[in-house]
Structure formats: structure tokens, C-alpha cells
Simulated assay, not measured.
Amino acid sequence: MLLSDSTTLRLGGPAAAFVAATTDTQLLEALTAAERPILLLAGGSNLVVADEGFPGTVVQVATRGIERDGDALHVAAGEPWDALVAHTVGEGLAGIEALSGIPGSVGATPIQNVGAYGQEVSDTIMSVRAFDRTTAETVDLAPEDCGFTYRSSAFKRDPERYAVLRVSFALHASRSSRPIRYAELARALGVEVGETAPLLAVREAVLQLRRSKGMVLDANDPDTTSAGSFFTNPILDATAFAALRERAGENVPGFPEPDGRVKTSAAWLIDHAGFTKGYGNPAGIAISTKHVLALTNRGAGTTAELVALAQEIARGVEATFGVALHPEPVFVGHAWDPIAA
């Protein structure tokens, strides 16, 4: 099986073996019996798989199920994420409406601590049920055990340990959204930051914003053949951010973090380092024509070409601004080389 058939980048060579698990029992059996190494695969929206493929067993997480307990939802890891968001909006449950349109599975969201438009899944996660591969036990992890940080978690930092089975969300019964935190979304809705809006209106506004940036999967739009935002926004200490402003000027974006550090915009840095929309190979790998944070496969690309472009961008940003960029997707069968970048 070619893994390019199961990733949103449409890149990746063959898997040595492939197992589909539609129940937790099948998933646990596969994790204990399959030949190593093992790759867990669901939506494939956050993977950069090597052209050579994966030398072990790919276990597809295809479990399904949504259980409601009051304002809480207990959701199987294999459920499609955006379908869950649509379900919560339909049920009048607020808390993840601004995360509409994000591809992938429910089980992947705590791993990446998925976030967009002012919301992160860690805002609403009440527990994660996972299989601990080091002890062969099923555990229920509280949020503080998940080690959530910006676009990361204990699951991402130690990818060989846990397999997510179920995610439980604490939501809020309301036809109005949680307070809007993101200025661009507030403008699209015609409200002030901190105000609320109808759930469905928030979902539709987010989907429209994401479509305008090529961030909603569409088979007819090559700008969506990507892994979403390829680089995370750098978070700098005060000294490093002051140095950045010395080099880049006062217009460089800065968003204060609770710990005193400052988050800046990877997209701004990329664009102002000379890597504009569409940069690259129009028949292979190129920056999206809609958003400089997305690297796209225009049809004839390879993973090697993708990584080469990503490294070129990272080198250019560091040379221009002295800021290191870090990729957001997970690399499979190869690694991000910070020296090359």
C-alpha cells in the first residue's frame, strides 16, 4: 500500500504491512502483535512520509463512536475531526466551533494540541484514554498529564509511548459560541473580540476564512494538497524578540504569551524573507498560492522536494531574521535536519 493514498500531501512510499483497526480491541491487538516499527495512521493530515515509505506496520485507526454525557462528549480516536465539530454545533455544544474545517481525526488533536482562531483542543479536553505501550496498560490521562503546550503535548514529545483510544471533551450547552478571541474571526463575524456569536455563524465564518487560505480539503483545489501550516509560529523570549525587531523593524507581529515570551508570525517572517505565495515548482512542490505557511504538492512532487523547499525557507528566514523555524507535521521514515536547515 502506498502511503501517498492516505496522506493529505499525497506523498509517501509503500508500507511493509498494513492493518485496519475498527475497534479498540483490534487496535490493541495490532499494537501488541504487529511487526515493529509501528506507525499509527488516521486522517494522514499531519504526516510527511518519506518517498521510501515505512519499513514496518501501518496501523490505521478507524474506530468510531460518539457518546454524550450531559455537556461532555466521549469520542473514539478514529472519528473525523470536522464531522465532530459539525456535530457539536448541531447539538448546541460550544467550545470547539472555531476549530472547524481542520482535517484529520479526533485522536490526533490532543497529540498536536490542535488550535486555530483563538481556540485549542486543550481548552476543552477533560481526559484522554490511551494505551501505554511501555506498560501494556490502558490509562485515562487528565489534562495536566497530557503536557499540553503550543502545538505539542506529551504524546508528540514521546511518540512511541501512547496510542490515543478516546478523547473526552467538556463542552458548554449553548447556541452561542465561546467568546471570540481572534481579531480576524471577530471582524468576519462583525463582533468585537470577547463577544460571542451564534455557533453556526462561527463555524461558517471559520470555514470561509480557511477556504480563502486553501486550508479546507478540496480535490479541485491544489492549494489544499498540503499538511496545513508547515511551520509553527516562533515563540521568543523578550531579548530574542527585541533583537528580531532590531532586524525586522517595528512592524513585525508580536503577541505576548502568559509566561512573558512573545509569539511572532511564521507567515510574516517567511513572506518578508522573500518566499512569496506560489514560490517553488508549479508542477511539483510549491508554497500555496493562498497562504505562505502551506507547502503544497501540485501533482508531481516528492517528499525529498518538499523537505528541500522547507529547508530552503527555514535557512532563508534564519539568515534574514535570526529566527529558527520548526516544522509542525510529523516526519515519518526520515527526520527534519536542523543542520541542513
Rank of each mutant, 00 (worst) to 15 (best):
S212K: 11
N251S: 15
S226E: 06
L200M: 13
A219S: 15
F255Q: 00
D259W: 08
K213R: 15
F230T: 09
R261P: 00
T239S: 14
L209H: 01
D237S: 07
I235N: 05
T225K: 12
P256F: 06
V206R: 03
G214S: 05
A242M: 02
G254R: 01
T264H: 09
A201V: 08
L207W: 08
V206Y: 03
E204Q: 15
A248W: 07
G254V: 06
A238I: 06
A227F: 06
F255V: 03
E257Y: 00
R245P: 03
G214N: 01
T232E: 09
E246K: 13
A240F: 02
A238Y: 02
F230V: 10
N233F: 10
Q208D: 15
L217I: 14
N251G: 14
V262D: 03
L199P: 05
K263I: 10
E246R: 14
G214A: 02
E246A: 15
P198T: 11
A248I: 07
T264M: 12
Q208M: 13
L236P: 02
E257A: 08
F241D: 08
T232H: 06
G254H: 04
R247H: 08
I235M: 11
V216K: 04
T239R: 14
T264N: 12
P234E: 11
V252F: 01
D218C: 12
L209R: 01
